[in-house]
């Protein structure tokens, strides 16, 4: 490990209240599954040195229903998501996404809240949450607020979350219609997404479609959705989608490829959910 362990500091609160107080008192980076954290510690690229371990906060682990709303605790692991009968029934595309996050060892540790907080534009669960209009529940000592997933990110690895707030849960309203998920990774497993999409087909003309790895943040394809809602042709929707994403060339893929594949996947989604 390139960063000296002795330079690090960890607090492990036993209750949510003490965790929130600790965040208010001094700047700390919350950690849970630590699967992203240790990659950057090992490579020596992380600046943070003071951490707050959330793993003892059992109350953030649960997956429940509250009326029509599916409530997923921020600490639910990707393995827990796959095993949850509620998630399997109500949000099967999140199960699909969870199966494709790293290998089993990562799925056993990595959490949904961590995937959101880490704010990578390639986060596999993010298009799912954006497509179903999930809300992120944020808590601080001052109280709780809900932010729609589609308004959560403000830019590359930036969000509306304040340093003294924690993600405690994700709330998913009832999803009607056909759910569709597709991850295009650098290989079949242990892959980082080059393009990742999630869609909901609510009716003949109604679709919700979100896409990751093609912009600084996950993109909810409002323009493409609008074209389809007005009864426009799929090719028109594809052009609209390709205009509302801003993919780049990077280590893993090219802008040209991402643009073409984004369009192909919208076509496929539309055809398969017809």
């Amino acid at each position: 490990m390139r960063i000296a362990t002795s330079s690090l500091d960890l607090r492990r609160p036993a209750t949510l209240e003490s965790a929130l107080q600790a965040l208010r008192d001094d700047a700390r980076t919350p950690i849970a599954g630590a699967t992203d954290l240790y990659v950057t510690l090992n490579f020596g690229t992380l600046e943070a040195r003071r951490f707050l371990d959330l793993s003892r906060l059992a109350e953030l682990r649960g997956i429940t229903e509250r009326g029509d709303t599916l409530v997923i605790g921020a600490l639910a692991s990707f393995t827990a998501l796959q095993r949850s009968p509620l998630v399997v029934k109500r949000l099967p595309m999140l199960v699909e996404a969870a199966r494709l996050v790293g290998g089993v060892q990562i799925q056993n540790r990595a959490t949904l809240g961590g995937n959101i907080a880490n704010a990578s534009p390639a986060g596999d669960s993010l298009p799912v949450l954006a497509a179903v209009d999930a809300a992120i529940v944020l808590r601080s000592v001052d109280g709780e607020r809900r932010v729609p997933m589609t308004e959560f990110y403000t830019g590359y690895r930036a969000s509306v979350m304040r340093p003294d707030e924690l993600i405690t849960a994700v709330e998913v309203p009832r999803v009607e219609g056909h759910q569709w998920f597709r991850k295009v990774g650098t290989r079949a497993a242990l892959a980082i997404s080059k393009v990742v999409v999630a869609g909901v087909r609510d009716g003949p003309r109604a679709a919700r479609f979100a896409i990751g790895s093609v912009a600084p943040t996950v993109v909810r394809a409002r323009k493409a959705e609008g074209v389809l809602a007005k009864g426009g042709k799929i090719e028109e929707a594809v052009r609209a989608l390709q205009a509302e994403i801003t993919p780049i060339d990077d280590l893993r893929s090219t802008a040209e490829y991402r643009t073409a594949v984004a369009g192909n996947l919208l076509r496929r989604f539309w055809a398969e959910t017809a």
Binding site: L10, I31, G33, A34, T35, L37, Y38, V39, N42, D53, V104, Q105, I106, N108, R109
Partner: peptide, 8 residues
């Protein structure tokens, strides 16, 4: 199973 290189 976990990767012990990623566990504090």
């Amino acid at each position: 199973s976990v990767c012990s290189c990623l566990v504090p």
